[in-house]
């Protein structure tokens, strides 16, 4: 069957435990359906299709576990990852400090040209804030990566963050293709034959039918 997409990006969410990675990817539990069966076994990854510049992009997004005892497993996920969301919790100073450790971890285990983005999650909890937006921005500038504050709970910037990361990966890839000419090594761009395109918006909340 014909390929139905133009690009395929594997993305990872990493960061300390409890910063909200699972909620960012898998929806905040309140309006998710959560059948007993599915919530007991948990979700591994999701495939999402978005459109950028009239190109269909498939995102395969993986959640990882932040706890120390899972770190070695987490690094196995780095293989083949093209984009990484580094998440901290704006109400937890420690999770922000640890971003540097996570960046080092990425440099050690992920592909050299992996696209990174930093998210300060739980920005709905202003009264419990420990990390100012300024400090987030500074750290991001220091590492030359993009930054956004998000709230998985209030659905703030989550969709935008994934679009931004996808757009940056695509731009990087397009530059590579431009400079080397279309070749196998240019990787994941696939000549797409589009069946029918969906105008469905990404991460929009569900309406009960």
């Amino acid at each position: 069957m014909a390929k139905t997409y133009d690009y395929l990006f594997k993305l990872l969410l990493i960061g300390d435990s409890a910063v909200g990675k699972t909620c960012i990817l898998f929806r905040f539990s309140e309006d998710a359906f959560n059948s007993t069966f599915i919530s007991t076994i948990g979700i591994d990854f999701k495939i999402r299709t978005i459109e950028l510049d009239e190109k269909k992009i498939k995102l395969q997004i993986w959640d990882t576990a932040g706890q120390e005892r899972f770190r070695t497993i987490t690094t196995a996920y780095y293989r083949g990852a093209m984009g990484i969301m580094l998440v901290y919790d704006i109400t937890n100073e420690k999770s922000f400090d640890n971003i540097r450790t996570w960046i080092r971890n990425i440099e050690e285990h992920a592909s050299k040209d992996v696209e990174k983005m930093m998210l300060g999650n739980k920005c709905d909890l202003q009264d419990r804030r420990q990390v100012s937006k300024d400090r987030g921005e500074q750290l991001a500038i220091e590492h030359g990566i993009k930054f956004m504050e998000t709230s998985a709970k209030a659905s703030i910037n989550v969709e935008e963050a994934f679009f931004t990361l996808a757009r940056d990966i695509k731009a990087k890839m397009d530059r590579k293709i431009d400079s080397t000419g279309p070749s196998k090594s240019a990787g994941y761009q696939l000549s797409g034959k589009d069946g029918s395109s969906s105008k469905k918006s990404f991460w929009k909340s569900c309406t009960l039918l």
Partner: peptide, 18 residues
């Protein structure tokens, strides 16, 4: 699996992902 427009995969139970 990349044929799907949007889908989620559960963790595997007895080699089955839902």
């Amino acid at each position: 699996m990349m044929t799907f427009d949007n889908v989620g995969f559960s963790k595997a139970v007895d080699n089955i992902m839902y």
